[in-house]
Simulated assay, not measured.
Amino acid sequence: MLASAASNQVGAATGALAFGSIGPAGVVAIRQWVAAAVLMSVTRPRLRSFTRHQWIPVLALAGIYATMNLTLYTAVDRIGLGLAVTLEFLGPLAVALTTSRRRIDLICAVFAGAAVIVLMRPQPTTDYLGLALGLVAAACWAGYILLNRTVGARLPSAQGAAAASLVSAVMYLPVGLWILLHQAPAAQYILYAAAAGIMSSAIPFLVDLIALRTIPAGFFGLFMSVHPLLAVLVGWLMLGQAPDLVEWIAISAIVTANVVSVRSRLRGPCRPGS
């Protein structure tokens, strides 16, 4: 799980190295193409056998893929990797908190909400568009979680996710080809974007599937809290994006809210994959 989380954030930082040449949209396009190629070759979904009842959530999931990655990478370009991933992390946290009526979760929600207000506090250098895009990415991640349940119920294994990644890759064909043909980026920037597809999509997807066979789902959810902290560290080391003290405190508060909420749910032994 640590390898998966680290791969995800290092991949995002690697893709960010190509922003100056092909922009976030170009990086996302190549990332989607690579991720779809890997997932389709691994899962081999039987697309011709999909019914209309199955295609509807798959197409919706493809739209979420496309929107989530573009808004996240554009936010990374504007406000930095650590802050963008922290805001995106509010998506799964919100799903967990809004589906509960426990007092501890209400406290965690208020705690996380206060941290978000601190992160978005008005300053001369505040990039409100970047912050807004991070929140859109969070909403997409929340939708991804909820919609994935429907896709998983209607299609076996990971066929739905692979099909959605293929549709998303096709959606990015026009913009990706236009950028590659008109901007003619150097090969290294294309490789950066391709590495983002492998490290941020293909590897985490496959590794997480393996991990969930032996790791309790509750602990897996708890371990998700490491993503914002890794994003801050990777952004600092690879991109030179050092957060200030207030941002560190706010990010830590959001992570703490998730840890407290998930830990309070872990009652008794939890079977792997439950």
Rank of each mutant, 00 (worst) to 15 (best):
F89Q: 13
G130M: 09
L106V: 09
A132M: 13
P92V: 04
Y144D: 01
A139S: 15
A137E: 06
A115Y: 11
T98A: 12
A112F: 08
R121I: 08
L133A: 07
L72C: 10
F89S: 04
L70M: 01
C108P: 02
T99A: 14
S100D: 02
R101I: 11
T71N: 07
T99N: 12
C108R: 00
L81H: 06
R102P: 05
L87M: 06
L106R: 01
G80T: 07
L97R: 13
L131D: 14
A112K: 03
G113P: 14
F111L: 15
V95I: 14
T71L: 15
A96E: 03
P92T: 13
L147P: 00
S100N: 12
D105Q: 04
Y128W: 10
R149S: 09
G80M: 11
R101E: 09
L146D: 01
G143H: 03
T125N: 15
V110M: 13
T71Q: 09
V95Q: 04
N69H: 06
V116F: 13
A137H: 02
D127M: 11
A94P: 09
F111D: 06
L131M: 10
R103P: 05
A115V: 14
G113S: 10
L133N: 04
V95W: 06
T125K: 15
R149D: 07
I145L: 12
L93F: 08
L133K: 08
A114D: 04
L93C: 03
M120N: 15
L135N: 10
Q123F: 06
S157P: 04
A132E: 12
W141A: 00
G134D: 02
G134A: 01
I145D: 02
F89D: 00
T150H: 00
R102F: 09
W141D: 12
L147W: 06
G82F: 12
A75S: 15
T125V: 04
A137P: 10
L106G: 05
W141H: 03
T71A: 11
I107E: 02
V95S: 10
G80K: 11
G82Q: 13
A112M: 08
R78K: 11
A75R: 07
F111H: 05
A84N: 10
A132I: 05
